[in-house]
């Protein structure tokens, strides 16, 4: 029982990271139908910028804001200078554009910051732990879970409770109609890119103190977050959160009880099974295609 609880705690912490990544993926996909393969690398870049700002003795909150802003800026620049001019590109062409961006960003991070493993200074300690009964919870795990949930709530309020959120939903549903009604679709797209990139950056900042900072730290979390988004349903924000937590917990429990060698395989097997039952994901909208 303690063991299971311990696995669950671990699963919740990784799950909230997956959920943050998945939210970014879903935000972009449902507004512009772009599968952003550079999501992980944008996040890594933001984290490295935060790291440098911290090295310049900036207060923690400012440094993190700077990092997230850098990630958001990359997202917006990519949208305006690459994605907009290449309007003609097919959906698959857009995927390839984001792959190109991923290569450029990952290369830039390697050239600027090197490839060695760095320690990301964080106000919470990973080795200081709280004990609840027999279950050990580190400060960072706790911080990750709480921050994740706060960010998700904020996003929910933004999308569901504000005018901007309404505009975002309108553009996502039908960009032409929204534009005809006077919603500045281009600005909304740019905002979506900024928001998605910043969410990724937040995941990076939460991950770096736990697994150290290196140019490839987001590779695995990005794939898992992407998978979680698909499992939850690509057009559903609550689905992304649900998918993220489910995936994190399933992975942790499977690794603990059965095999950590096939952890990732299992994660994808579960996702494929879910999709076979619900091809549009857990909370995805079932839409009926017409010919």
């Amino acid at each position: 029982m303690t063991q299971l609880a311990q696995y669950l705690v671990g699963g919740l912490a990784t799950g909230s990271l997956y959920a943050l990544v998945a939210l970014g993926v879903v935000l972009l996909y449902r507004s512009s139908r772009v599968l952003n393969f550079a999501h992980g690398d944008i996040a890594t870049l933001g984290t490295f910028v935060a790291f440098t700002l911290l090295g310049r003795k900036l207060p923690f909150s400012l440094a993190i804001t700077g990092g997230l802003a850098a990630a958001a800026l990359v997202g917006v620049l990519f949208f305006f200078f690459v994605l907009r001019p290449a309007k003609e590109a097919s959906l698959l062409g857009k995927i390839v554009l984001t792959l190109g961006l991923a290569l450029v960003l990952s290369g830039a991070v390697q050239v600027v910051w090197g490839t060695d493993t760095l320690v990301f200074p964080f106000p919470l300690s990973d080795t200081r732990v709280h004990r609840i009964g027999q279950v050990v919870v580190s400060e960072t795990s706790l911080g990750t879970i709480v921050t994740g949930i706060v960010l998700m709530t904020l996003l929910y309020v933004l999308v569901q409770g504000t005018k901007i959120g309404l505009a975002m939903r309108a553009v996502a549903q039908n960009a032409d109609a929204a534009q005809a009604l006077g919603i500045p679709a281009r600005k909304i797209y740019a905002l979506t890119w900024a928001l998605a990139a910043a969410l990724g950056g937040a995941a990076g900042v939460l991950l770096a103190p736990v697994v150290y900072l290196d140019p490839f730290m987001m590779l695995d979390p990005f794939l898992k977050g992407f998978a979680a988004a698909v499992m939850g349903g690509m057009d559903s924000l609550p689905g992304a959160v649900l998918g993220g937590f489910l995936l994190g917990i399933a992975e942790s429990v499977f690794a603990g009880y059965i095999s950590f060698k096939f952890k990732t395989t299992m994660a994808f097997a579960v996702i494929i099974l879910v999709l076979l039952v619900r091809p549009e994901g857990l909370l995805g909208r079932v839409y009926h295609r017409r010919v």
Partner: peptide
Amino acid sequence: VSYEVTDAEVAAQALK
């Protein structure tokens, strides 16, 4: 107890 060089974290291995 083994890990893959691409593994992001090793918490499960530590418990094992």
